[in-house]
Nucleic acid binder design. Structure first.
Lengths: 200, 200
DNA sequence: CGCTTGAGAATACGACCGTATCCCAAAAAG
DNA sequence: CTTTTTGGGATACGGTCGTATTCTCAAGCG
C-alpha cells in the first residue's frame, strides 16, 4: 500500500482556503487555480479531493454553516437573555477583520444560493437549525407574546436572524457606519426582546 | 450629420437588460455578450455605450438605486404610519416574481459592493438617502424615544432597513418560508414601531 | 450628388476558466 | 528488490471572458 493521508483533513484545508478567498476577494475570484494557490497546492492536487468545482463550493458552504453553529453553541449560557442575544448576534457581525471574513463568505454563499439549488438547500438546512435553536432559547427565556408563545418565538427568531443578516450586509460595504448600526442593533433588540420579562 | 440616437435612452435600455439578467441568473452570468443578447443588440453595440464592463455595472447599480427611491416615493402618504411602513417594506421584498427580480439584482450588487469600491460608493449613497428619508418620516409620525428622538429615529430607520434586507436575503433562497417571514416582519414592526404613539 | 460622421456588427487577441488525462515519486506488501 | 497503489504535479483542450480594432451602412449637410 502506498502512502495515505487524512482525506477529510485535506478537504477541510482546501475548504478553508475557499472561504478565505471568498471573504477577501469575493466568490468571483474563487477558481480551482486560485484556491490551489491559496492552499499551497497545485491545481491538480485540488482535483484529487474535489472532482468538480461545484462539489468544492458545496463543501465550503457546509464548512461555513458548521462554523456558525459552533459559534452559536459557544455563547455563555449564564448570561441574561438580552445580553446573551446581543452577544450571539455580535459574533456573526463583521465588526472586526476576523468576523468580516466570515460574514463576507456567508454573504457570498447566500447570494449565490439564490440561483443555485444545491447551495440553497445547504443554506436552508443551516438556517432551519439556527432558527429552531434560537426560538427554543427565546421560549426558555420567557419571551413570546400572544396566545401562542411558541409561534411568537419562531417569528421573533426569524426577525432577529433577518436583522442580523441585514446589519451584516450593510457593514460589509459600509464599515464606517459601524457605530450607527450597533446602536440600531441595540435599539431593535430592546424593542424585540424587552428587558422586563412579562411573566416572571 | 449622420443619424443620431438618444444615447441616454440606449444606456438605460442596456442597463435594464443588465438588471434583468442579474435578477434571473445572477451577476456571474452578466457578461458583455449576454447583456447584448438580452438587449437584442450585438456585443459591439454595447461597447459603443459603455467603454468598459465596470462602467456598465456602475450604471446598472445607479439604475437599481433609482428604482428603489422611486418606489419609496410612491407609497401613499395618507396611510397610518404602521401600515405605511409595512407597505414600504413590502414593496422591496421578493414576495412575487416581479419584486423577486428587483430584490435579486439589489442583493447581487450589494454583495459585489463588499469587494468593489466603486459599487460600494454608489450603494452607500443610495442607502444614505433612503435612511434619511425613512428617519425623517418616522420623526414626523411621532416615533422616536428617549432624550434624543431624532437620533432614535435614525437608529430605528437603520433597524428597519436591516430587517428588510435580511428578510429579502432569506426570501430569495427560501421562498417557501414566505408566510413565516411575513409574520416575522409584522411582529418586528409591531415591536419597533408600536401602534400607540407615545406623545400624541 | 458626394462626403462626412456616427451607429452598429464582425472579428481578433490574449487571458483565464473547468475539466480530463497523463506522468512521476514514494511507500507498503510480496 | 520488485511490484503495486496512491498522492500529487504537469499539461492539454475547448470554451468564454473583456477589450481593441476594423468594417459596413445609412443619414444628414454642403
Amino acid at each position: 500500500m502506498p502512502k495515505t493521508v487524512d482525506r477529510e483533513e485535506q478537504r477541510r484545508q482546501i475548504g478553508a482556503a475557499v472561504l478565505r478567498l471568498a471573504s477577501e476577494q469575493g466568490l468571483d475570484e474563487v477558481s480551482v487555480r486560485t484556491v490551489a494557490a491559496a492552499a499551497g497546492r497545485s491545481p491538480g492536487a485540488v482535483q484529487k479531493y474535489f472532482r468538480t468545482k461545484d462539489e468544492m463550493l458545496a463543501f465550503a458552504a457546509e464548512l461555513a454553516g458548521a462554523r456558525i453553529e459552533e459559534r452559536m453553541a459557544a455563547v455563555d449560557p449564564g448570561l441574561p437573555p438580552r445580553e446573551a442575544l446581543c452577544a450571539l448576534v455580535l459574533t456573526t457581525l463583521p465588526v472586526d477583520a476576523e468576523r468580516r471574513a466570515e460574514a463576507a463568505a456567508q454573504l457570498a454563499f447566500a447570494t449565490r444560493a439564490a440561483h443555485h439549488p444545491g447551495l440553497g438547500a445547504i443554506r436552508r438546512r443551516v438556517d432551519a437549525d439556527v432558527r429552531e435553536a434560537l426560538a427554543g432559547w427565546l421560549a426558555d427565556a420567557g419571551h413570546g407574546r400572544g396566545p401562542e408563545p411558541g409561534a411568537d418565538c419562531l417569528a421573533l427568531a426569524d426577525a432577529v436572524i433577518a436583522l442580523s443578516d441585514g446589519l451584516a450586509l450593510r457593514l460589509l460595504y459600509a464599515p464606517d457606519d459601524r457605530e450607527a448600526l450597533l446602536r440600531a442593533l441595540d435599539r431593535a433588540l430592546d424593542a424585540l426582546v424587552p428587558p422586563a420579562v412579562p411573566h416572571p
